[in-house]
Design a protein around this nucleic acid. Sequence first.
DNA 1: ATTGAATACATTGGTAACTTAGGTATGTGT
DNA 2: ACACATACCTAAGTTACCAATGTATTCAAT
Lengths: 110, 110
Amino acid sequence: MNKQSLYKGCLEPIVLQLLGSHNRMYGYEITVKVKELTKGALQITEGALYPLLHRLEGEGVLTAEMEHVGNRMRKYYRLTPVGQATRKNALNELNDFIATLQLFNKPAIS
Amino acid sequence: MNKQSLYKGCLEPIVLQLLGSHNRMYGYEITVKVKELTKGALQITEGALYPLLHRLEGEGVLTAEMEHVGNRMRKYYRLTPVGQATRKNALNELNDFIATLQLFNKPAIS
DNA sequence: ATTGAATACATTGGTAACTTAGGTATGTGT
DNA sequence: ACACATACCTAAGTTACCAATGTATTCAAT
């Protein structure tokens, strides 16, 4: 078992948290920021991120605005009002989750 | 997204931790203990647990011994020496994971 | 000037780790 | 008698990811 598997299911709350503290971000920026923030511990793959962003946009959690920087396209995402609430809720769940995991955090007994 | 999805990938380290602090346990006991410990926050399904135990046994992480209590069978699992090491490693990964998640734990900015 | 890496978007196919639903059987409470 | 708890198990479907690939532009290095 690869430790990366622990992060399964955490991508959405992480992205929501990032967007909750950054006004707006584009996809590639998110991957770089996460890698940087976690010092490489977590590397979001684009194959996971882009479909997630599209889904969240479709659900009304995010809005997107295209922008051109030079000749290159960027798609900026930001939280909608619904997304703000979703983020808060996801944060609560994340904290409950962490608290629960801590219950099992014992050095050993043997 | 159901918050249960956060636990995806955490079942193995949790089971290893439990067995690391309990000498030996049987499957059903594990489900009850986890539910009790987490006050219902985490309910391991048998469809997830039994295949996991079988896999870990096959990998040499656990050994099993059958026992009869009255007319009913119990299959007790315990960590092998390999399993002890696996548990320690899983615990480290779990702690790193928690530390990484904490990086995103900010109330908000908005 | 060309090559590789970085930037930036995206999709497709495969898979691991679950959930849901079921099956078998014994014991216990009402 | 019936439901619920105990105790094992499996099979089929779902989900959320990863790996690989594709397109195109920009920049640094040789």
